[in-house]
Amino acid sequence: MSSAVRQWRRPPLIADARLRWALGLGALLYLGLALASLEVNWARVSEGLVRGWRFVEGFLQPDFSSRSDDILLGLQESITMTITATVAGVALSIPFGIGAARNIAPAPVYYCCRALIAFARTFQEVLIAIFFVAMFGFGAFAGFLTLTLSTVGFLGKLLAEDIEDIDETQVEAIRATGAGWWQVLDYAVRAQVMPRLIGLSVYRFDINFRESAVIGIVGAGGIGATLNTAMDRYEYDSAAAVLLIIIAIVMLTEYISGFVRRQVQ
């Protein structure tokens, strides 16, 4: 009977011990150098702290009333922008998402839709907003176009990936009944991706609201524009009121979208 104790250790992720140590030490060294290269102007920081404190003070006494008209107008614009852009974006992303799914779309359609979605996703919302503001002028229309485009990029990609992940045997079974292409899409594909599509659309709704606040800063209208104006005037109490409203609405939409997503699963 063999009495030797057999040792076992989990095999390391990187088998070569020298490479493992070199990578670890290299990462540490890089972090050290990177931290050393940061130039911090401490005088500027102490000055900024004062300004930051005024901001915090504004937050402690948010002023909802003196700019209430502007705030309400901005809010109304933002919500309109969010709803219209989400509806238009979802409606457009469905055909593009279907076209960008490799398993159901023919190759030329697939490449066109993929390219379009990739293009829509390349630029951050703020950049797209700057472009549309330059093209269509200040206001909510530029914001609407920005959010629609980025919704198509976001939902189109996720929908396409979802369609590529569906259970193929269900598709095969429906095809075997003699169903046409649209019927296969309706019975085998839609049935499988619908709950997630609804969940993602609601999720995109709350992203769009948050983004509407950001793109307003570059002139695309909505509550962001109101916020920007307040900041420019150093009216931190009004700005704080706007931010608090944004936070409240985002939390509300987040809660609602979470609830909806749980329901459709």
Binding site: D167, T169, Q170, E172, A173, I174, R175, A176, T177, G178, Y187, A188, A191, Q192, M194, P195
Partner: peptide, 16 residues
């Protein structure tokens, strides 16, 4: 295909 019925291994029903 509509003239030929098929029954599958993992049922292949549309689950939802």
């Amino acid at each position: 295909r509509r003239r030929i019925g098929m029954i599958f291994q993992e049922y292949a029903l549309v689950e939802r």
